[in-house]
């Protein structure tokens, strides 16, 4: 490629990985803003608590499992066991999509019992927080699919593990972020 100016500086951590961590700090601030707003509203007089559908716990199981398969996929990649890597990546993507589908199902259940987006401020917060987290998961799924497609490119001879590592760090992050959000919604509500 033209303009590939590659740096010969000494580095302790790959710049792309570091950039991701800084980006994660930014995303965290966004959810910190939302959850702080939630706490502020929670302490006002007219707060109406909600009941979380059980489906959210199933989706949690799906995303935790996907983190595990992705972790194993990363190990397989480093061991250059491409068949196992592809299989585990397939599992990860399926679990990721399952997570999104379960979130949608949970919303439909809420909707069915009359908890609409506009019903109360507390339920609006639930919708917005879960929606924004879902958007970040979808971003992760897209990154996984790009990686997945690369795994089938037979011309690839260089085993550069940075993209795999960057993507899995991000994926584990949205996983942990979801667990935090779920516990937050259960406990503060």
């Amino acid at each position: 490629m033209m303009n590939t100016v590659v740096m010969e500086q000494r580095k302790k951590i790959h710049p792309h990985k570091f950039t991701l961590w800084v980006g994660i700090a930014g995303i965290l601030m966004m959810f910190a803003g939302l959850t702080s707003a939630f706490i502020v509203k929670r302490n006002q007089a007219d707060w109406k608590p909600f009941v979380l559908p059980l489906t959210f716990w199933y989706s949690t199981a799906a995303i935790v499992l996907s983190s595990l398969t992705l972790f194993l996929a990363g190990r397989a990649y480093k061991a250059r066991e491409m068949m196992r890597y592809r299989g585990l990546m397939t599992a990860t993507i399926i679990l990721g999509v399952l997570f999104i589908l379960l979130q949608v199902v949970a919303f439909m259940q809420l909707y069915a019992i009359g908890e609409k987006l506009q019903s109360s401020v507390s339920i609006s917060f639930l919708y917005v927080i879960v929606l924004l987290h879902g958007a970040h998961v979808i971003g992760g799924i897209i990154a996984l699919i790009v990686l997945y497609a690369k795994a089938f490119n037979l011309k690839t001879k260089i085993y550069n593990s940075v993209p795999v590592e960057v993507t899995s760090t991000y994926w584990h992050f949205v996983d942990v972020l979801w667990i935090y959000l779920l516990l937050f919604l259960v406990m503060i509500n």
Binding site: G23, G26, I27, M29, M30, G33, S124
Partner: peptide, 17 residues
């Protein structure tokens, strides 16, 4: 910028809703 703009973004998203 990295730590404060996302908070504005969350405010703006709530406003959009």
């Amino acid at each position: 910028g990295v730590l404060s703009f996302p908070v504005l973004l969350s405010g703006a998203i709530l406003l959009l809703f």
